[in-house]
Design a protein around this nucleic acid. Sequence first.
DNA 1: CGATATCCGATTAAATTTGTCGGGTATGGG
DNA 2: CCCATACCCGACAAATTTAATCGGATATCG
Lengths: 142, 142
Amino acid sequence: MKLSTRGKYGLYAMYYLAEHRNEGPQTLQSIASTGVPKQYLEQLLGNLRRAGLVASVRGAQGGYQIAKPPDQTTILEVIDAMEGPLALSECTTDEGSCKHACQCPVRKVWQRLTESINRELAGVTLGDMFEEIDDCEATVNE
Amino acid sequence: MKLSTRGKYGLYAMYYLAEHRNEGPQTLQSIASTGVPKQYLEQLLGNLRRAGLVASVRGAQGGYQIAKPPDQTTILEVIDAMEGPLALSECTTDEGSCKHACQCPVRKVWQRLTESINRELAGVTLGDMFEEIDDCEATVNE
DNA sequence: CGATATCCGATTAAATTTGTCGGGTATGGG
DNA sequence: CCCATACCCGACAAATTTAATCGGATATCG
């Protein structure tokens, strides 16, 4: 069970934008400086923009900016924007897809797990990521 | 973010075996009666067997049996056997893969989330699935 | 106007998942 | 002993998803 690189790239990008949120629009070029293919990242930022998580400025001197304060952007929003909503089994989202009894216990497990994982993801914000940095000169870009 | 069908098929199979745990070895044929391709399920049961979750009996009258009491088999074990351990980012498992500072905050988020999702998965057992069935004639096979 | 930089649909390449095939091996019953 | 049964297993093929690339359109600052 793995997350695709989309989620990872997306979160790195959001973190980068959160870090530079007071420095004007950041170009794709600078966001991609971590080694993410630029044109691929462009697609991903499109998803983040359509999800309302980043704002873009077109034209010269343009770029991307985080749309909300970091502590109002949850990891859940980022992951959902990048990979679509968490669906452990179609069972839980698409009624008709289940061949079994409508109330089958396997389904209940998926629902319960889906809810608690979503709760977990919703419980962490970009802002939280800045808290423990004191003891470490961590940077996302080289 | 989705789980593959492996996890789903695997959990159905485990549930089926838990249901029929006192009825001797269950053939692949009967476990697959839900519409899962038989030969594909055979592979999956191989994984479950190597993980120690089911025991098999070869030869005529053979089949598969659950290896432990249902309340001692967690969903985490099943998912891990089917899809490998949860790894949101290689960051959390493979030290060298991270180009960023060793302590980067993005990584901490992945680690924290991985731990809590695993805790969640480990908190539900096959036995738990039988508890709420009273009000519902749920069966996994048709 | 022109350099900059986002936007976007289409296409290709790579990887993973899903499913199939064919033969091997163990075992109980006649 | 034989043979039908049923698990075992590696290799392969098909389908789907993910990752990345391409080419050009559009917007905007100076």
